[in-house]
Amino acid sequence: MKNVSIIFGSTTGNTEKVANLIKDHMTDCNVTVSNVVDAKDAMIESADLVLFGSSTWGYGEFQDDFAPYYDNMSSDLLSGKNVAVFGCGDSVGFADVYCEAVNLIIEKASDCGAKVIVEGLKVDGEVDDNLDKIEAFAKSLL
C-alpha cells in the first residue's frame, strides 16, 4: 500500500477541505493529512508520495503558515521524492497571479530534486464547484 503525506496551509479552511477530499479519493493508499504547522520531516521521509497544498493570498503570496515551511524546503528531504501540489485561488480578482503558490511550490520542489508527477491542481473559487476536478486529480496520483 502506497504511503501518502498531504501537508497543507489553510486560512479559511478551503485548502484543508481540498486536502481531505483528495484523501477521500485515495482509498487504496495509507494517507496522512497534516496542517503545515504540525508537519514533521518523518512524514516526508516515510512517504512514497508527498502532496503540498497552499492557497494564494494577496498578490501571489503563500498562505501565512506555509511561507516559513517553503523557506525551509530542502534537497536533503525532498531529493528523489514523488511530489504533487494543489492550491486554491481567485482567477477573477487576481488573474495574473492566480494560484501562484502552486507554481512556486512546484518550482521549489523541483529545485530540491523532487519529481513532480502531475500538473498542479488549481482550485478556483468555491471548493464545491471543483469537486470533479479534485477527484480527477486525486485519481491521477494512484
Rank of each mutant, 00 (worst) to 15 (best):
E107P: 07
G53W: 04
N20Q: 12
K17Q: 15
T12D: 00
L131P: 01
V127H: 05
A101M: 02
S75M: 12
V36P: 07
A47C: 07
D71P: 03
E45R: 10
D132E: 15
V36K: 06
A136P: 08
G120H: 06
Y59C: 11
G80I: 13
F8S: 01
V31T: 03
N82Y: 06
Y69M: 09
E119M: 02
K23A: 15
G125A: 08
D38P: 06
G93M: 09
V37P: 00
G125I: 10
F62W: 07
G120R: 09
D48Q: 11
T27L: 12
Y69P: 01
M73P: 03
L142E: 15
G120N: 06
T32M: 13
L131N: 12
L121T: 10
V92I: 13
N14D: 11
D71H: 09
A39G: 02
A67S: 15
L142A: 15
N130W: 06
G87A: 13
V31A: 03
S140P: 02
I117Q: 02
D132P: 08
K139Q: 15
M43P: 05
N14I: 01
A47W: 07
G113Y: 09
G13Y: 01
E119G: 03
K115C: 06
C99D: 04
E45N: 14
M73N: 04
K115G: 02
